[in-house]
Design a protein around this nucleic acid. Structure first.
Lengths: 197, 197
DNA sequence: CCTTAATGGGACGGTTATGTCCTATTTTAA
DNA sequence: TTAAAATAGGACATAACCGTCCCATTAAGG
């Protein structure tokens, strides 16, 4: 998962370099394992991170601690990718495509987090998650057909689900660019010809 | 969940009326509980069904047994709803709308099943699940824009995800018809204005 | 009414994941 | 090189869930 590190993890003054590395390794392992197997044990995650289970417990008191940290970690990754996509530059569609491309790899883990009971219930966490979406909403609104009657929240969810669906499609053999093309086509045309066209 | 019972459950010659009732109650409980909490215990499901845990175990040997039966149960419910929608009648869009309406309540459980490791791995079950989708694929193909370059499998997945998203939206306060309207608009127009329009 | 079918509830052992603690070893940094 | 910081690994108690079995009670059907 070659993604830009968010600085909130890169420069954490609290932790030594070594501890930051293992902490990130654990978070990356959780990032990779949990979407595939949502009920993976902490042993599974520790093993994937090449780390002893006791070490994992030293960094994260319990499972909810880990999920909580993972949520913030992923949120940062997502926000960094949104910024790098420069959503306010160029044509709306080009911006959307860059956003899709940037969020593509995050699709599965974002869905896992969105469905996790902890993230769903914890109000603070849930709120914090929407923070970085402002620019995304801007871009979606900029690209929207003025005649579109659906609420912004709906279109936002559609965006995320299509991104995740695209990620999932590559797992079934499709190439990344094919998946992104399919996302873009569906985003711009839907999948059924309306009478008005 | 006021859905048409599939006859495969209604008239099972093997079971007495009483046992069929409790069996269906358990399946309905699982249908309601599992999408919300995918790792609900068998106790949770039995409790929701107003049934002792031992009774649940009498009907379904173990958890995989239950999920397996649930998959077939839901598949039947879905197929009944597809038939009732008469997907080959009328304009393509009207047919799609009827299909969406018929599958609306099944969205969450279908996603749960689609993601369940048992359903994913068991080849027989996985195959059986695609059986009833033929008419759905027909209707989607009938409604498709001839210029749409995306594969049918992709559009099928988009259909299911939008249905599930709509169900999810009602859980957040939206009215059912609003959700269906949003689904239909997105299915026919997407959510971003393309250059070609 | 009486027999049989079905259920409810509880007890039990086995398994798995969890969280805590301790110790020996390795790595890091001064 | 040496002291401190991290880690691996294992032991341990706890809790949850599962699958099985048994028995008393209730409901159903002849």
């Amino acid at each position: 998962m070659a993604l830009q590190e968010p600085e909130s993890e890169q420069s954490n003054p609290q932790l030594s370099a070594a501890m930051r590395r293992t902490r990130t390794a654990i978070l990356d392992a959780a990032l990779a394992v949990l979407p595939v197997n949502p009920k993976a044990s902490l042993s599974d995650i520790a093993e994937k991170a090449d780390v002893g289970r006791s070490t994992l417990h030293r960094h994260f008191n319990d499972r909810t601690d880990l999920v909580r940290a993972l949520a913030l970690y992923v949120r940062d990754l997502s926000n960094v990718a949104i910024d790098r996509a420069e959503p306010e530059v160029g044509t709306p569609l080009a911006a959307i495509r860059r956003l899709v491309d940037g969020q593509f790899d995050l699709g599965p883990i974002l869905v896992f987090l969105h469905e996790d009971p902890l993230v769903r219930t914890d109000p603070e966490l849930h709120e914090q998650f929407g923070v970085g979406e402002d620019k995304l909403i801007m871009a979606i609104t900029r690209a929207a057909d003025p005649a579109d009657p659906t609420p912004t929240a709906w279109r936002l969810r559609v965006f995320w689900e299509l991104v995740r669906l695209g990620s999932d499609f590559t797992a079934n053999g499709a190439a990344r660019h094919e998946a992104i093309d399919a996302i873009m086509y569906t985003l711009t045309h839907g999948m059924a010809a309306g009478e008005s066209r």
